[in-house]
């Protein structure tokens, strides 16, 4: 009998209480510090050495022309749909131009929509 009472009490409580699950995407969930999410590139720091292009295991990097990059005048372009977020590019970049942010909202209707942010500070 005791068990049944408990069951009814729980059922009523859950019927009127808030759901246990998180109301995503209306409530945001923060990723932990150090999460390997969307890539961002600081063009002012990049020297165009293409080391990132060489280490990338997923061949997700293309070197494209960019006037802002000195001296090589080309910068990496990240095809995020191919990327496996291993962060090898960020690890081996000699100038620290590549950062992996905590943004994990990587969706788009087209492969071309998902590409990395390119900032110039």
């Amino acid at each position: 009998m005791k068990k049944w009472g408990y069951t009814y009490k729980e059922a009523l409580k859950r019927l009127f209480g808030k759901p246990y699950t998180i109301h995503y995407p209306f409530t945001d969930i923060k990723a932990f510090e150090g999460y390997r999410g969307k890539i961002s590139l600081n063009v002012n720091k990049c020297t165009g050495c293409s080391l990132c292009f060489r280490v990338c295991p997923a061949s997700a990097i293309e070197m494209v022309p960019d006037e802002r990059v000195k001296p090589a005048k080309r910068r990496p372009h990240f095809k995020l749909a191919d990327c496996c977020y291993c962060a090898l590019c960020a690890e081996y970049c000699p100038t620290g131009a590549i950062k992996l942010t905590t943004d994990y909202h990587l969706y788009g209707f087209d492969k071309r929509d998902v590409s990395a942010e390119v900032k110039s500070e």
Binding site: A31, F32, E33, Y35, R36, L100
Partner: peptide, 15 residues
């Protein structure tokens, strides 16, 4: 998985 995320930066493929 949360522990993995905190330690390695990803939940499933830890690298």
């Amino acid at each position: 998985l949360d522990l993995f995320e905190e330690m390695s930066g990803r939940r499933v493929v830890y690298s």
